[in-house]
């Protein structure tokens, strides 16, 4: 896709959407939002950027390949479940503590895991399909 308007606006929109996505993720515990929604917004940002600037440009903006993000996401979510076990409580019991006046807890960390997993999995599908779209094949 080669339009000047999309190319220009997508740069701003990309940044804004990513900020919005992190914002949604972090405030999710108290206001509408959360890891799942945040991840969907982030995927939208990357999908838009890839449409405007091409796949490789979008890939360069990723810290890790999408499927690695899935792995990290699942690991983070799993690790957030474990501290409760060390304290002799049932798995996934939320542990809360205050960090510089902000309440942080394992459920928030778990939500970050959700965010990374959903983001990685959807992006893997979209990037994969977009890559394949450049080599379309006959039939279904």
């Amino acid at each position: 896709m080669n339009t000047l308007i999309l190319k220009t606006t997508s740069r701003f929109l990309f940044t804004l959407l990513l900020l919005l996505s992190v914002f949604l993720l972090l405030r999710g515990h108290n206001e509408p939002g959360g890891g799942f929604i945040g991840a969907l917004v982030a995927v939208g940002a990357y999908a838009l950027f890839a449409l405007a600037h091409g796949l490789s440009a979008a890939r360069k903006l990723l810290p890790l390949p999408p499927l690695r993000l899935v792995g990290w996401g699942l690991l983070v979510a799993l690790l957030s479940a474990l501290p409760a076990l060390l304290l002799g409580q049932p798995l996934m019991t939320g542990q809360w503590f205050s960090l510089l006046g902000v309440k942080v807890g394992t459920p928030v960390i778990f939500d970050i895991g959700v965010y990374l997993t959903v983001f990685g999995a959807l992006l893997a599908a979209i990037f994969g399909l977009e890559e394949a779209a450049h080599h379309p094949s006959e039939g279904a």
Partner: peptide
């Protein structure tokens, strides 16, 4: 420790 019930259900 969350006011967003949906999210608390999901993550906790």
């Amino acid at each position: 420790f969350g006011r967003n019930i949906v999210n608390v259900i999901l993550v906790d």
